[in-house]
């Protein structure tokens, strides 16, 4: 058994003060375990969101030593424990209390995306046929656990606060999952350009770096969507061609 110190941001409504907690740590512990231990040893009002404790629900997002991480998947043995471990709430969202922020803007942005609209069923019983290789592309995007770490790290949201004009990496991944769904017939390209701010993204790839599901957000989702925007709005030949092509 050894000891470690955790420097946790405490306070409400953005008025935060770092407080140090020293606890005994055990084998295999993750940051979320430390937070729970601090709660049960006295700071019972220490606010934190969590659910599955296995990296599957995306609830316990925070900034550990300045990096956006899932607390349940950050092992203490991978951190430098000779210094206090800082745990702060995500910076890109309005603060509620301690490690909890108001992430509701992400839900509002998602609702602005046109829902799935499948083509007519392939079979008489109302089902479809799809090849495994055709679904794998969108299965990558559907792994997303909505932890919003990509939104947190994105400078368009974090530094420029464009929450109402820019839906952010998570929601581009969702748009890509719909746009590249083998059965979908909806067109979302105009919305991405006009209302959802895809042009703000200048592909710094910070979102890809922090994704706990290792989704290649920039390369596989955002860039192909940007290409569709370019094709539809800026390429003169495609534009001409589309004028005569029947709508899918």
């Amino acid at each position: 058994m050894s000891k470690a110190t955790f420097r946790i941001s405490r306070g409400s409504g953005g008025d935060l003060t770092p407080e140090d907690y020293e606890i005994e740590i055990g084998e295999g512990m993750v940051v979320l375990d430390a937070v729970h231990q601090i709660q049960s040893e006295g700071a019972s009002d220490l606010a934190v969101r969590w659910n599955c404790k296995a990296g599957k629900c995306g609830s316990c997002s925070a900034e550990v030593n300045g990096m956006p991480r899932l607390m349940c998947m950050t092992r203490l043995e991978d951190l430098d424990l000779s210094q206090p471990v800082t745990i702060e709430p995500m910076h890109a969202f309005p603060h509620v209390r301690d490690l909890v922020t108001d992430v509701s803007s992400n839900y509002r942005a998602k609702k602005s995306i046109k829902p799935f609209k499948p083509r007519k069923p392939d079979n008489a019983d109302g089902t479809w046929n799809m090849k495994q290789e055709d679904v794998e592309r969108v299965q990558e995007f559907r792994k997303c656990i909505e932890c919003f770490l990509c939104q947190d790290v994105c400078h368009v949201l974090r530094d420029h606060h464009k929450h109402e004009e820019f839906i952010g990496p998570r929601n581009f991944v969702y748009s890509a999952a719909l746009e590249m769904h083998p059965l979908d017939t909806e067109d979302r390209v105009g919305d991405l350009k006009k209302d959802q701010g895809i042009g703000y993204c200048n592909i710094t790839k910070c979102c890809t770096v922090v994704c706990p599901e290792n989704i290649k957000i920039t390369d596989n989702a955002i860039i192909p969507l940007k290409e569709r925007v370019v094709d539809e709005f800026y390429d003169p030949f495609t534009k001409l061609f589309r004028m005569f092509k029947p709508k899918k």
Binding site: Q39, S44, A47, V48, V96, R97, D98, V100
Partner: peptide, 8 residues
């Protein structure tokens, strides 16, 4: 403490 997001 108070009623704001209070796990206790």
């Amino acid at each position: 403490s108070n009623r704001d997001f209070n796990p206790g």
